[in-house]
């Protein structure tokens, strides 16, 4: 569903090294590499937000995308519950871990940072989509959250969804991903 050949992406100028990448339906691929290598930028390029400076990027036509970024949804001071958040993206609360399912009616700004992050992530992960792009999904999650997320990524992939995960968490990437692509620093010369 996604194929990139010698792709160089960036915002105002190229920031990633040329990379070959492919993703099939039902596959989970991890993107790792040191800070500043352009993992989030590449994810943004897959989503059509960042620019492609050279190379080739091909997405299956009609693909429904869902993107989770590292930005925290701005919900402080707003009367938005977990149910409201899930309804926005069309995600179902079914399958939420018990420690979150019982708080899904709570205001988001009354939840802990980790609980809020997981709900925000769940809303994207379970939105009706064929390709899900996740940027550092384990940020703010405790061990139970990471285990639950890992299990649900596999479940989502079994449904035919392709998933790209950017993460620094080596243990999580090893447990969750079918394949790992390590990005290298761009040679500025």
């Amino acid at each position: 569903m996604l194929r990139a050949k010698a792709l160089v992406a960036g915002w105002l100028q190229p920031t990633t090294a040329a990379i070959d990448f492919s993703l099939a339906a039902g596959e989970i691929v991890g993107l790792t590499g040191p800070n500043g290598v352009g993992k989030s930028t590449l994810l943004a390029a897959f989503a059509g937000r960042a620019s492609v400076f050279s190379g080739h990027l091909e997405l299956q036509p009609g693909l429904r995308l869902a993107l989770q970024t590292q930005d925290v949804p701005p919900v402080d001071g707003l009367p938005l519950s977990g149910c409201d958040l899930l309804a926005m993206t069309g995600a179902s609360p079914e399958g939420l871990p018990p420690w979150l399912a019982e708080r899904v009616d709570w205001r988001l700004d009354k939840l802990s940072g980790g609980q809020r992050h997981y709900l925000a992530l769940w809303a994207v992960l379970h939105a009706p989509a064929d390709l899900v792009l996740l940027d550092e999904p384990t940020n703010n999650l405790d061990a139970a959250g990471v285990r639950h997320l890992t299990a649900h990524l596999h479940e989502r992939a079994r449904e035919g969804c392709g998933i790209v995960v950017v993460s620094h968490d080596a243990a999580f990437v090893a447990a969750a991903c079918d394949r790992v692509v390590v990005m290298e620093v761009r040679d500025v010369d």
């Binding site: 937000r49 429904r64 869902a66 993107l67 949804p73 919900v75 938005l80 309804a87 994207v124």
Partner: peptide
């Protein structure tokens, strides 16, 4: 729904 989505998930809103 779009007003809520565009505020809460601006990137998701755009890429859809």
């Amino acid at each position: 729904r779009h007003l809520l989505l565009a505020h809460t998930y601006p990137d998701f809103f755009r890429i859809r």
